[in-house]
């Protein structure tokens, strides 16, 4: 028998989690319920945070968006395509319309699967994850949030409340590869951001390591090598960039793809997303 606790508001949710650190949080349910339905997981307690209004809001403060952890992906696609095009693109690839109506960024963070499609855009954009507990709140850089497959720095009494992302300062891309043309778990994905004013590049890969990974070396390389005054994208730069992003990954062979193919796909998607972002930058 699962005990089901419904949080009325954020304070209540934090209290419940403090009282029951072993409880599993459920918002959209798109991960938690699969395990329950298949009998692959047993939960002694569920804390429902789907009614917590504070988690279901987003707001813009200057150049930053504060995105509540419980905003469903459908709303991210519909409402945040201008501010956060990379995340919105990724959100559109998640599951089906029905899934996007329920699933949340908080869920992707909490589940901490390397295949969470919303995660590479958070890393690429250098987002920060806000977590709260009865002990207070803290912000964790998205790039430091994950510690392994299904594992993060989240303490058992903590709740992800929101994500802070900079409003896009330039083109943002997200590309994902899967064996079907919809409704598919990524074999590999890449998120990329360009910030021409500060001459910065953000890049992250999903489904290609135990956690989503930022490609720091590739970012620095591109930032330095790109002709930010509007020149062409030289083929060797592109190739090296793809190689560096792939080099940041450490994929494994599994049912959905071999390590070699994943690495190859990351390199291809990295080159492509950079190309498209670069084209977009100079088209506008």
């Amino acid at each position: 028998m699962t005990q089901f606790l419904s949080a009325a508001d954020l304070r209540h949710a934090i209290e419940l989690k403090a009282a029951h650190p072993d409880a599993t949080l459920i918002a959209g349910g798109t991960d938690v319920m699969v395990g329950l339905n298949f009998g692959h997981r047993q939960e002694s307690r569920l804390i429902d945070i789907s009614r917590v209004a504070e988690l279901r809001e987003w707001s813009r403060d200057g150049d930053t968006v504060r995105l509540g952890a419980g905003v469903p992906y459908t709303r991210i696609v519909e409402e945040l395509g201008g501010e956060l095009p990379g995340l919105a693109r990724a959100a559109r690839t998640i599951g089906s319309a029905q899934i996007r109506n329920r699933a949340t960024v908080g869920g992707n963070l909490g589940t901490a699967s390397p295949a969470g499609d919303a995660l590479p855009p958070l890393l690429a954009a250098r987002a920060s994850v806000e977590v709260a507990s009865s002990r207070g709140t803290r912000a964790v850089p998205a790039r430091e949030f994950f510690t392994g497959p299904g594992r993060s720095v989240l303490e058992t009494d903590e709740i992800v409340t929101s994500v802070r992302l900079p409003v896009a300062a330039g083109p943002q891309q997200f590309a994902k590869l899967g064996p079907r043309n919809a409704m598919v778990i990524a074999v590999a994905s890449v998120a990329l951001t360009l910030d021409p004013e500060h001459r910065r590049v953000g890049c992250s890969a999903g489904s290609a390591a135990p956690t989503p990974v930022a490609a720091a070396e590739a970012e620095e390389f591109a930032a330095a090598e790109l002709d930010w005054t509007g020149g062409e994208l030289p083929a060797p730069v592109l190739a090296r960039f793809g190689g560096l992003v792939a080099g940041a990954t450490s994929p494994i062979d599994d049912l959905r793809g071999s390590a070699g193919y994943r690495r190859h796909a990351v390199a291809v998607l990295a080159r492509r997303t950079l190309t498209w972002a670069w084209q977009e930058l100079w088209r506008s």
Binding site: F4, I26, G29, V32, D48, I99, N101, R102
Partner: peptide, 26 residues
């Protein structure tokens, strides 16, 4: 029963969702 087929799609407060992925208590 894992949100992959859509055959259990229902409106929940006006929004189409997979009923298999909503906990009854929710």
């Amino acid at each position: 029963e894992q949100g992959e087929c859509g055959s259990c799609t229902v409106y929940l407060d006006g929004t189409p969702v997979c009923a298999c992925l909503v906990a009854a208590g929710q």
